[in-house]
Design a protein around this nucleic acid. Structure first.
Lengths: 254, 254
DNA sequence: TAGTGGTCTAGACCACGGT
DNA sequence: CCGTGGTCTAGACCACTAA
């Protein structure tokens, strides 16, 4: 008889639903296929729509579903691997990387960034906006903060904004010796401006990659890049094409 | 009068709530302090409890709050930096790293892992369970999959499980030449067993770090480590002690 | 036992995308 | 215009923790 799992800890409905739906996605649906709408699905499973939505939210968080208002819920393709390795010791914008430079403004960086830059809080920095596009999709939005002291040659010119200015700042950066960089990844939620660039709703889960660029023993620039957490897998190294599934298999001892 | 924000796109209540609460956290609360309970807060802001909860969920996702059933909602400390840099070319378990080895079982790896290992689907592998503890907190749970072919010396022994067995497998691994490793990070939700180890509810957001260990041109082992996304910031490099805030400041052009 | 957060319901209305 | 997902409500009960 073996100790058959006592239902001493009954599984929440949405959790069970998520499992069932996940299995259905594996067996009965193709990538891109649209699911029945939420009201129908809820009725079919005999739960309230809010409960069904809780399950769908989890599956979306795991990158298995994509939901768009006014359209419907579709089966998401596997996450794409996005290389964020730090091996190449280059400044941002060097060579032709995957980033599209959008514009440049003078901005007072958030306190946390100011702390990294070791500038006075309230001091403005050049702030370059860039977008990372891969396979025709916007996967990340970045803000690059560069204190004026890092690019002294630029201080004379007056018009401190616009795409041309952005490229000028990047060009000026590359004249410095890049001594190193370090990187951190954490979970965040998309600010309204990032959300718009990434074609997501505000608050959507994102992976925030913070990079410090060092030169002459100090921090010359700080980049805060927000990657779509639903569609991206960040890779460090030469494994951009490996495929990680999103299944939630339980451990099965032999 | 300046162009006062037309409410052409009215902000959702929960989003506005999140902003207000976030500011209150900065100014009026200390780390560890407990907030009023959800029913009181909802009443105070004149919204339904579900709406308030949506705001709290976002703040928790950003690592600013911690909620525990039966206890209350507290202000979370800043996320801790956890080093996951790949620079040290060592096998897992070498030296004294931050991992605590728990046990070892024979498990059929999930298909995605089997694909990385290039084993037959359905083939069992040694599976070592480890826990990463930092500052007295469990921050990550790992499953290390090692095909029997990677540690041929072990195949004779019979008892294939237990902590002693786990250490034996790791010891055997370190006799191999580690030629390289690569790493990927993506968002996931905690499986029930990981959730228990991490003292979180099932489905809690986690950062999944997948590492491949190479030897002799093939993949000798694959590690799948799930880190608590609420309390951890993964660092790559020597920046373990830098502090990134979780604020959602908007860009303010000068 | 009292109080907390977690789950669930059955409605309602809104914002958006396509027809 | 209709159908979709997104937001919101006002309840209810459950699971957990601590006194």
């Amino acid at each position: 008889m073996g100790t058959t799992q006592l239902d001493s800890v009954p599984e929440p409905k949405y959790w069970h639903l998520k499992t069932v739906l996940g299995e259905a996605l594996d067996s009965d649906f193709a990538v891109g296929e649209i699911l029945p709408n939420e009201r129908d699905l809820a009725a079919r499973f005999g739960v309230a729509r809010a409960t069904l939505r809780q399950a769908l939210e989890q599956l979306e968080l795991e990158g298995r579903l994509q939901r768009r208002r006014g359209v419907g819920t579709t089966v998401a393709p596997p996450r794409m691997g996005v290389d964020v390795s730090t091996t190449e010791h280059t400044w941002p914008g060097a060579g032709e990387d995957a980033w599209r430079t959008v514009d440049c403004t003078m901005v007072v960086p958030p306190p946390a960034v100011a702390r990294l830059l070791d500038t006075d809080t309230g001091e403005e920095t050049y702030t370059v906006r860039r977008l990372r596009v891969t396979h025709g999709q916007s996967v990340a939005a970045e803000l690059l903060y560069i204190p004026a002291s890092s690019v002294p040659e630029l201080s004379a010119i007056d018009a401190p904004s616009g795409p041309a200015r952005a490229r000028a700042v990047l060009r000026e950066l590359q004249r410095l010796d890049l001594e190193g960089q370090d990187r951190a990844v954490e979970l965040g939620s998309a600010r309204v401006d990032d959300a718009k660039e990434l074609e997501r709703l505000p608050g959507a889960p994102v992976l925030v990659v913070t990079t410090r660029y060092f030169t002459e023993g100090r921090t010359a620039a700080v980049s805060v890049a927000t990657y779509r957490a639903d569609t991206c897998r960040l890779t460090f190294g030469d494994s951009g094409d490996l495929e990680i599934s999103h299944h939630n298999e339980e451990r099965r001892a032999s």
